[in-house]
């Protein structure tokens, strides 16, 4: 058994999970909902094993490093963290249905990684040969994943709000009736960002500490650094908006989606469109 086979199983399982979540939305059948999130967790376990196996394989071929060193590995890890954060939020707040808007992000990541990215285990370039790699990448991606979950919840918020506005009835029927109330969604959005913001903060700080250790400067306004700060500013604005009248609800949801768009640009856009110190993430 190879990690690559297990990653394929993971991708398929997330696909099944997503379809079950859509069926859950349409059918409102509790069993289907349970099957949907069980599939997601099964995929998560398989993926965990696969990541561990890839780590071992890297030692077997003599490179010996954590599977966090290139774009393929980071996308796989990102989708793993998305399911992890979704699991935490589902476990704590019992709103299974948000999986319908979160699992697709994880599936998208896995599908892209498996179909579009080169999956070879490469040796570590000198710049990455440090334990800071682990701390920096793990905290950043957990943060990104929390923002992905917040974005999924915010999309649900906007959909739900629009329908409630259109029918003028909080008890609107159909698929969307399955959604938690907009008040709950607004609160969950905030909760997800409360998980993501400290992690992003630690991610930026560990990045700065590493940069200082490797290059002698903790901040050099490199595009990646700057974009991570942009993301930080957006979510800091979100957190302050929470305690300002008129910024709860719709505007908060939009800010959360904008924040995640900036996160994705920070993660992928900077490497694809801009040049800088993080070029090994290509």
């Amino acid at each position: 058994m190879t990690s690559s086979m297990l990653f394929n199983v993971t991708t398929l399982t997330y696909m099944v999970s997503m379809l079950l979540f859509f069926a859950f939305l349409a059918s409102r059948n509790r069993t289907v909902g349970l099957a949907a999130s069980s599939a997601a967790y099964f995929g998560f376990i398989v993926q965990t094993v696969a990541i561990a196996l890839r780590w071992k394989e890297s030692y077997d071929i003599g490179h010996g490093h954590a599977p966090l060193s290139n774009l393929y590995e980071s996308v796989v890890f990102f989708s793993w963290t998305i399911i992890l954060i979704y699991g935490l939020i589902e476990f704590k707040y019992k709103y299974r249905v948000i999986g319908a808007f979160v699992v697709p992000f994880a599936l998208l990541g896995m599908a892209w990684a498996q179909l579009g990215l080169s999956s070879g285990i490469e040796p570590l370039v000198p710049a990455l040969q440090s334990n800071w790699l682990l701390y920096h990448v793990i905290t950043c991606f957990l943060g990104y994943a929390a923002f992905a979950v917040a974005c999924g919840i915010s999309i649900m918020y906007l959909v739900k709000e629009k329908q409630e506005g259109a029918t003028g009835d909080a008890q609107a029927g159909g698929i969307i009736a399955q959604f938690p109330s907009i008040k709950v969604l607004d609160d969950l959005n905030y909760k997800a960002i409360m998980i993501g913001f400290p992690l992003l903060t630690i991610g930026i700080i560990t990045g700065a500490a590493w940069a200082n250790y490797a290059w002698g400067t903790y901040w050099s306004w490199d595009p990646k650094e700057t974009w991570s700060l942009i993301v930080w500013f957006i979510y800091a604005a979100f957190l302050h908006a929470r305690i300002t009248r008129g910024w709860v609800g719709r505007r908060a949801a939009i800010l959360s989606i904008v924040g995640f768009a900036a996160t994705i640009f920070c993660y992928l856009g900077v490497n694809l469109f801009l040049s800088g110190l993080h070029s090994y993430g290509k």
């Binding site: 595009p223 700060l229 500013f233 604005a237 305690i243």
Partner: peptide, 24 residues
């Protein structure tokens, strides 16, 4: 005012983009 805080944070976020697009 908190409105100023929010405006400044969003303003800093938006203007910071310039330096990532135009080489420094």
């Amino acid at each position: 005012s908190l409105k100023l805080s929010i405006s400044l944070l969003i303003g800093l976020a938006a203007t910071s983009i310039i330096g990532t697009v135009i080489p420094q």
